[in-house]
Design a binder for these strands. Structure first.
Lengths: 217, 217
DNA sequence: ACATGTGAACTGCTTCACAGCG
DNA sequence: CGCTGTGAAGCAGTTCACATGT
């Protein structure tokens, strides 16, 4: 019996660790397709751009998943990582904002594949409300509180213009949403029990711009 | 004379610092619109979700921009941060992959606004090649090397399916590209002189999933 | 012999606290 | 007096190195 994920979990886990776990999981899934049965921390590390010690340390927070002298069983570690990351269940997701980004996200297959079920898309534009995107109906943003009262989504994806982001977030939080994936280029102000992750293209581009500007000097 | 950005810049700057500088810049721009003349490290911190000491330390790597007892001049600090981040010039950007994400990015106004000039979009799909997106023409991916040889883009945005990402990156790098903004959910293998930033929605969602799963425990 | 799991050492980012200056 | 700028202290994340198990 190896799958002892969650038996540990005493100290707080660093954000960077969680990100790497995601990366390991993706690589494991690729390896499984290639028919690899067993993998070492070193192979995992090379592919993820880190070190074997880092891989082992990351995993050690959650249990012992390897066999000494051998490495990790690909299917077993895959399953353990899924469990650790909370991917063993379905999460209900709503998308707020039916613009270009919201649309691209709504049609992204990767969401469903990983257990993130998009239940609804919201917008304020009467021209968009009522239109159908595949199986998803664009709903009226004014209904969002009523809908959430019935079934609270686990995660709300915010894909509205910057100027509307904080207001939208406030509404969602008041209605009970506890996790937001924010695509608007602004730092949302939220209470401590609400988790926010930001996806900010402007910031990433500026990061590259900074590196390019300071490369030689 | 205050704008002494770049007179310092001895030690390596942490990634987290650069990200915060981006955030400060955005907030400063918002403040300027509201007519604010002067701002303290404390105000900047509250808005950016950090501490005043952190703000001052971040800025101190690049010079002294404030007035003791007063704070920072909004226009002066804005200009200094733009300079530090390398936003004082235009960067040429190509988008590789004319799918949903590539399309959304190509039409994103924020790019141009901040000096990131999209010069071309590439795809391999004959049905897409030759179509026009606003002012941008979708070009044949097989031409990318020839085009780059003429004008090397500063940054390439990778918005192709996972399976094609590494190959596309290899081609771009061989052709001279030194900075990549990668939207494919895979860890690209690149030489040391190439900078990569990742935008990975799956990873962010998994981060939220992890937090939600471990919230109470 | 080989690769994991982990305490100990190390590195570097963050926070503190206060001197310095407007 | 208020707020910046910055060494020093504190802390968290990473790397080392080796005992441990197969």
């Amino acid at each position: 019996m190896i799958s002892q994920a969650r038996s540990h979990s005493v100290k707080r886990i660093a954000d960077s660790t969680v990100r790497r776990l995601s990366a390991y999981l993706r690589f494991l899934e690729e390896s499984a397709v290639d028919g690899v049965e067993t993998i070492s921390s070193d192979a995992l590390a090379r592919r993820g751009g880190t070190t074997s010690a880092q891989v082992r340390k990351d995993l050690s927070f959650f249990g012992s998943f390897g066999k000494r002298g051998l490495g990790y069983s690909v299917p077993e570690l895959t399953s353990s990582l899924r469990d650790i990351l909370g991917l063993g269940r379905e999460w209900n997701v709503i998308i707020v904002g039916a613009g270009k980004i919201g649309m691209a996200l709504g049609q992204y297959e990767g969401f469903e594949q990983r257990g993130f079920h998009v239940t609804a898309v919201y917008d304020t534009d009467p021209g968009k409300i009522g239109t159908q995107w595949g199986s998803i109906l664009v709903r009226d943003m004014s209904r969002v509180e009523a809908d959430i009262a019935e079934v609270t989504p686990d995660i709300a994806v915010l894909a509205v213009p910057v100027g509307e982001a904080q207001d939208a977030a406030d509404r969602l939080i008041r209605a009970g949403v506890k996790a937001i994936l924010n695509f608007a280029p602004t730092q949302l102000q939220v209470p401590g029990d609400v988790s926010v992750r930001n996806v900010n293209m402007a910031m990433e581009l500026e990061g590259l711009s900074f590196i390019l500007s300071n490369r030689d000097r």
